[in-house]
Amino acid sequence: MLQWALDALLGLGLLWLAWCALMSPNLLKAIVLFVAFGLLMALAWVRLDAPDIALAEAAIGAGLTGALLLAALARLRFAYADEETVGSPAQEEAKVRFPQWLPAVPLLLVVAGLGYVVLSLPPYATGLSTEVTANLESSGVSNPVTAVLLNFRGYDTLLELVVLLVALLGVWSLDGLALGRETAPGPVLDTLSRFLTPVFILVAAYLLWVGAHAPGGAFQAGSVLGAAGVLLLLAGWRFRAGLTELPLRLVLVAGPGAFVIVALVTMLMEGQLLEYSPEQASILILFLETTATFSIGATLAALFFGGRPQDDKEHT
């Protein structure tokens, strides 16, 4: 009874929040609602017995995406600072040229496609969890989610890392919008960022370690590391110019790079892409996850920063 009430409240709350976030004309309000949605979503995953996804949602959905959206909003406001934000001629024109119903067409197509796929599924399917459990011994880890992500379907994770990197390249290739002037962070924020950074590092390392046998892993650890970077950036920290050139880029490509090298080596030795022998699987996965953690953390922090670091001239 109580469980039902809890789940019903979560489900309805999620739908309602999603609707409000989408319909809000005030962008800041939409972002706050979106952050709230992320928090509630994490609770929903917990109720669905999916702590792995809850952890990812907590780290990425509720934590970093909110900060990313807020930073994007700040840049938008700065870019349109000379125009009237609401109802500027450019925006009005855009409204006329772009009929509002147009996005509905591809959306309906996607819905139809998804509906077809769902309806054409066999009514009774056991799923792949039995196979995963059967092969868990040889995967090198005891957490089935990590086994799938880094062993059985390692190429998925490899491509995800590449997608993240491509996103950053996209941001970098855009003309970097300068941020407005930045006020002094004040001693409280300064101290907070200094004190929290070591804790972030420890928690990230912990999530990396725990991923081998319980919820956790490179993406969660990477976002915690990225959050540390975001906090330092917000507190006014900037790396020295020399570090943002080659060293930063090396860290950015380390994760996908290591993955590609391992993929090639395993293909030569085992004859199949990302096929690890059970004896080496554990250490290989740890190696891949560690490099991926650093890359993901650096990529997320760089995404938050916006433009290419060397374009940033105004900071001391």
Binding site: T183, G186, V188, L189, T191, L192, F195, L196, V199
Partner: peptide, 20 residues
């Protein structure tokens, strides 16, 4: 402790920002 530290700092930052 983390919530305490973050809560106190954020409260100060928001109040300081509001005053500014």
């Amino acid at each position: 402790v983390l919530v305490l530290l973050a809560g106190a700092s954020v409260a100060h930052l928001v109040a300081r920002g509001a005053l500014q």
